[in-house]
């Protein structure tokens, strides 16, 4: 039975975040990367009972702090002031990353420059001449969580697919991505294949013509 579906319109950024949020299993421990993935938290429901992890040492992170709730000692990985929810906990950095590396987080959602059909991820460094490299927790997160999902636009500004046969950007982690959410399609990487779960504002055939890796309808 096919699970493939399609819509006439592309997904907006909020709709992408909504789709990711809806796919997060209830009760999961989740790390949302900086940038687009952070928006996912706006669409998680109380009923889902998801606990958010931030790499700088907290589980049970709440929404961004405003007004009197702003506390310089309570920030997220993007160094933005946040709040703590009932049941929150604090821990030091080695514990925080042991939590990732040890496979205790259920899902992490990251942005990407490129993902290969084997699930290799590039998201830390463009490799450009003169660029100052910075890696932060990207490599730990990519290979640590039980499932690593990517949110990205499928195409570069010049129209090239970021879903590729082999990475041309420097590697963040090998074989770690299992799902990719883009504005035109949601991909699942499993059994050495790239499945298209849904297409948005594009036909499966047109999608295949623009992406060099072989696609299969889910």
């Amino acid at each position: 039975m096919s699970n493939y579906s399609s819509t006439q319109e592309k997904l907006s950024r909020d709709e992408m975040a909504q789709k990711v949020a809806a796919d997060i299993p209830s009760g999961a421990f989740v790390n949302l990367g900086i940038g687009q993935p952070t928006n996912v938290s706006n669409f998680l429901t109380n009923e889902q009972g998801v606990t958010l992890h931030t790499e700088n040492g907290m589980l049970g992170m709440g929404p961004v702090a405003t007004g009197e709730d702003i506390d310089e000692d309570l920030i997220n990985a993007g160094k933005i002031p946040v709040t703590e929810l009932p049941g929150a906990s604090f821990f030091h950095h080695a514990d925080s990353f042991a939590m990732m590396r040890g496979g205790h987080l259920d899902v992490c959602v990251l942005g990407a420059f490129q993902v290969s059909e084997a699930g290799d991820l590039a998201n830390w460094h463009t490799g450009a001449e003169g660029a100052i490299p910075a890696v932060g927790g990207a490599m730990d997160l990519a290979i640590g969580a039980k499932q690593t999902w990517v949110m990205m636009s499928l195409f570069t500004k010049t129209g090239e697919s970021k879903l590729v046969e082999a990475l041309s950007y420097p590697v963040t982690g090998l074989g770690c991505v299992s799902r990719i959410y883009t504005e035109v399609a949601i991909f699942e990487l499993r059994d050495s294949k790239v499945f298209v779960r849904s297409a948005h504002g594009i036909s499966f055939e047109e999608l295949q013509s623009k992406v060099s890796v072989e696609l299969t309808k889910a």
Partner: peptide, 15 residues
Amino acid sequence: ELELVPQGNLAERIR
């Protein structure tokens, strides 16, 4: 001089 280390490796090397 810059020695760039993934954050978790940095923490674990200190630990």
